[in-house]
Design a binder for these strands. Structure first.
Lengths: 233, 233
DNA sequence: ATTCGTGGCGTATAATTTACGCAAAAGTAG
DNA sequence: CTACTTTTGCGTAAATTATACGCCACGAAT
């Protein structure tokens, strides 16, 4: 059974960010090896003494100097035996979200990545390995999750105007929504806190009140059997 | 980085079956090694030349002589570094369903498993590794999926009376449902085919017409944006 | 003061879900 | 044959939720 030794275990991260009505995904440029100069998802091999989750956070720190505020396992890609031309590799992909406060990238020097950069989701270039496929799966997961989990808040600032949440949904789901019904529904859930602050003046239009997602309230609802779900006309 | 060589990749399968109003899960008894005599989930190490999915089907064939009719990746367990006392192992768990036609187990001799056996889900003994935890996750997934994917049909015979589908839902979700509304809703979807046959006589009560799940019809609905969803009062 | 652009609330109608009554089709016992 | 039991199968009214829109509020620029 020594054969089984030769399978390598990697992790990859699909990190989404949202800025000014655009959905971004984080990519890094390979510094060494056969894939030098090619854009790929941040990630790398798992070390023997670390958990999968630790491996992902480590790689994100090393390659992009970024901390995410939502992280979950997405899928393990291992059915295409030749996805990596060098070895038999299986990759555990993680799905991550960052909010605008953590959007900035800080590059460390001692890594496999030459550079880290945000790409608008519809401007992602041809990537190494099967990473374009992986992004597709992750993008789909994001769209789905948005409708049945209050995950959009992890892409927004701590405090946000309602219109930000609304346009986040329209942008990511590529679907028009009725502003009034959307607001009514979200507010009816009861996990949004009104703040006293108003949105900074953007030059035109009435300033909006800022809201905050109350995680405690949400968890309490969950424990009472509440199920988040939001659909559109 | 030779460290990464030492991580072993395994697959495990959580196979569910349904018979006479009871949900079963498939377990095998270890034949060799430290875990000899202990019940665990069917599974084993992935060979270098095979895909993850191939590894699962192979192990299921070897250890229990069973063919499943639904198989999907569940989760990759690799955060507990010491889940296997011998090596650092990560395990890709698969979620599987068998219908009554494939319920029978045939044991091969040349495997790690001494015996394969169905256990009622609420009579599962203490298992090796973290397998009790894995079953919990799979059981939850089954419950969830039942409500948003027409997966229950994979646990029933090709042709079935409506009451079977109904009690499957009540048993697995541990929830009473209104028979009349349930039937109305499911039929309204339009992916059930009426057959001409009536259910074999059970001794009392009116014989039921048998139905068949029409996968083609379902896929056509899907492509039109249909979303299966079933909730209960 | 008027106009422009966003924010914010309300109400009528349509669609869907929930609750539940009851007849039809078997088998069985007398 | 009739009464009684059991399970199937259909229908209809009420309650709830989703959808479609109308319109005023507030702030800034002209």
């Amino acid at each position: 059974m020594s054969e089984t030794n030769e399978i390598k275990v990697a992790v990859d991260a699909i990190v989404f960010g949202y800025q000014q009505n655009t959905l971004y995904v984080l990519l890094v440029k390979q510094k060494f090896g056969q894939m030098k100069g090619i854009w790929v998802l941040p990630g790398g091999f798992v070390l023997k003494h670390e958990s999968l989750k630790e491996a992902v956070t480590r790689e994100l720190q090393e390659e992009a100097g970024i901390q995410v505020n939502y992280l979950e396992q997405l899928y393990t890609f291992g059915d295409d035996i030749n996805r990596d031309p060098r070895f038999r590799v299986i990759s555990v992909a993680y799905f991550a979200l960052v909010n605008p406060d953590n959007f900035a990238l800080v590059h460390q020097n001692d890594t496999d990545a030459e550079e880290a950069q945000w790409f608008a989701i519809d401007r992602v270039p041809k990537l190494g390995y099967d990473h374009n496929e992986i992004i597709k799966v992750a993008h789909q997961r994001l769209k789905n999750k948005l409708t049945y989990q209050p995950i959009g808040f992890d892409l927004l600032a701590e405090e946000f105007p309602f219109s930000d949440l609304e346009s986040l949904y329209t942008v990511i789901l590529e679907q028009d929504i009725d502003r009034r019904n959307f607001r009514k529904k979200i507010l009816s859930f009861g996990f949004l806190e009104e703040t006293n602050t108003l949105s900074p003046n953007t030059g035109s239009g009435r300033p909006a009140r800022l809201f905050r997602f109350n995680n405690n309230a949400y968890n309490q609802l969950l424990s009472k059997g509440f199920h988040f779900e939001i659909t559109f006309a």
